[in-house]
Design a protein around this nucleic acid. Structure first.
Ligand SMILES: [Zn+2]
Ligand SMILES: [Zn+2]
Ligand SMILES: [Zn+2]
Ligand SMILES: [Zn+2]
Lengths: 134, 134
DNA sequence: TACGCAGTGATATGTTATAACACTTCTGGG
DNA sequence: CCCAGAAGTGTTATAACATATCACTGCGTA
């Protein structure tokens, strides 16, 4: 059973539409970009509308927040909970999701720090944007 | 020779004061918190003042930006260039800087992505904030 | 002097995010 | 059915973070 099929998931119209918008985009989207799309669909035009929907989707593992971009992306593997890792193209803003062992485990144990979540976001050029020198 | 001693470093009064403020704080500070301190010192009271100084310090390796917090912290090891990794306490906002091998190297090579920089920020509880259950 | 450059001052604006409160809809227990 | 609480939404306002732009100053140098 995937996350998306869980009985306690409440995908209301706004939440469903936000998830669809993210799934269609194949790239990270800012909250206000999403809001503009919602507004066009008559589903709300104030910031809290989109932020509430995004919070819900992120909490339930259907979307992730990209800290580097202050933006959001649909989860590539909503089946199971995970700390995501991303490779973000600085040119086309495309995002590739991946998974990775938390690299700070050792340092955390050594210093007594208790890690709850780790943000891992690599930035660079995706294959398509690596132009041959002009 | 440390970064801070490099001849081409131009630590103007505003830049120097911002660095001092960061060094005194032992925690991540928002740009507007820093700006309030600058204003108290008569060194400028408009956002561009502090953002220009912070950009300079970050570019020259004397400070880092914490993406998770949209905030800034003095570099713990300005001697040499590095991709920093952080452990951030969600309670007291203290930041511990560390270094770590880039964990996405393998995935990047496999997919042809060219990594330029990697953000690694763990969030959790520092030793001091791990209260015994009340 | 004239020029170019780095830094700064100042104004305005753009972008991202949340607080607060009212109202509606859903849901379970009596 | 009726009610009470929980969850969701509408709406207004504001907080917090960041940049564009243009003018001006001081300084090194041709
Ligand atoms: Zn995911
Ligand atoms: Zn690209
Ligand atoms: Zn550092
Ligand atoms: Zn702490």
């Amino acid at each position: 059973m995937t996350h998306a099929e869980r009985a306690d998931l409440r995908l209301t119209p706004v939440r469903r539409r936000v998830l669809e918008i993210l799934l269609e985009s194949h790239a990270a989207m800012g909250a206000y970009d999403i809001l503009a799309r919602l507004k066009a669909d008559g589903l709300g035009d104030q910031p809290p509308v989109v932020y509430r929907a995004l919070s819900y989707l992120v909490e339930h593992g259907l979307a992730h927040r990209i800290e580097r971009l202050n933006a959001f992306v649909a989860c590539a593997r909503p089946e199971d909970a995970h700390d995501p890792a991303f490779m973000i193209c600085r040119t086309c803003r495309s995002v590739h999701e991946s998974t990775v062992a938390t690299p700070l485990d050792h340092a955390a144990r050594a210093s007594g720090f208790e890690i709850e979540r780790t943000v891992i976001e690599a930035e660079g050029l995706c294959p398509a944007c690596q132009e041959p020198a002009p």
